[in-house]
Simulated scan of single mutants.
Amino acid sequence: MNELDVLHVFCGGDGRHGNALGVVRDPRAFPDQASRQALAAELGFSETVFVDDPERGVVDIYTPGLRLPFAGHPLVGAAWLLDLEAVNPPAGEVWVRQDGEFTWITARAEWAPPRRLEQYASVAEVDALPAPPPGEGWLYAWAWQDEAAGRVRARAFPRRDDGIVEDEATGAAALLLTERLGRALNITQGRGSQILTAPGPDGTIEIGGRVRLAIPVPVASTRR
């Protein structure tokens, strides 16, 4: 019976929060896109990763409603779990490094899906935002907590029709915000998740965060 590893990616300094991620390390029972999409929809995580080659880090990423060529928190989580120097989603090779409690990946902003990045005047305005209705496109709402220090408060609203009202931590949106602002950021997102970013050479951007592992569960137990 296959096991599903459940990770929390981009945890806060106290180890809490982070965006939940499902990782199927032996996906032979889910050999095609249709079966993987069905499992991702049933699990209901914002993303689920299928590991097709654990030695080369070849991974396949799904939201409950679609397949993604790149996503930040799934790749940080998979890189931490597999303990590799690189992971390979469809978008391209993603280099990995470990730095104490943080796992970092190197990516390019053009790999990230489009997001509407909207700046608000204060943290209080971001905190007070209501959940928008589904089906209106992605919104990444942010405000400076401390502009001089690069500290940002953010919330992410996928506005998808797949049951994900608000994303707790989104590496792809952080990647786009870092490209726009052109500087390293320390982002507090959702209830208390932490995402670190840093521009690199040749248009690359590093995304880093803490990862913790929940108790693995049999995949079959999640299926009705």
Rank of each mutant, 00 (worst) to 15 (best):
A131G: 12
Q33M: 11
S193L: 10
A71D: 03
T106R: 15
N88H: 13
F70R: 05
R67Y: 14
E179R: 15
L68H: 07
F30I: 03
R180F: 01
C11H: 00
H17E: 13
Q119F: 01
D32A: 02
A198M: 09
L39N: 12
P31C: 03
Y120C: 04
Q194W: 09
E168S: 00
A38G: 13
T178Q: 04
E47L: 12
A112E: 07
S221V: 15
I195M: 08
E101K: 11
P89S: 14
P113I: 13
E206T: 03
E206S: 10
L7Y: 09
Q37L: 11
A121K: 02
R28C: 05
D83S: 09
P64I: 00
G171C: 14
P199E: 11
G203F: 10
T197M: 08
A40S: 14
F30D: 04
G72E: 00
G182E: 11
R160Y: 05
H8Y: 14
N2V: 07
V6R: 06
R151L: 13
H17L: 07
E3M: 11
L68E: 04
A156W: 00
A112D: 09
A38N: 02
G13Q: 12
G200F: 00
V126Q: 04
L82V: 02
A40L: 13
L213I: 01
A149H: 12
W138K: 00
G22Y: 05
L175T: 09
R212A: 07
A174R: 04
N186R: 14
P158E: 05
I164D: 01
G192H: 04
R224T: 07
A38D: 12
G100T: 10
G208V: 06
G57V: 03
A173F: 05
I187L: 14
G18M: 10
V6I: 15
N186M: 13
A86N: 03
G200E: 15
R210F: 06
G171R: 13
A29G: 15
P69K: 05
D162F: 12
T48K: 09
E101G: 04
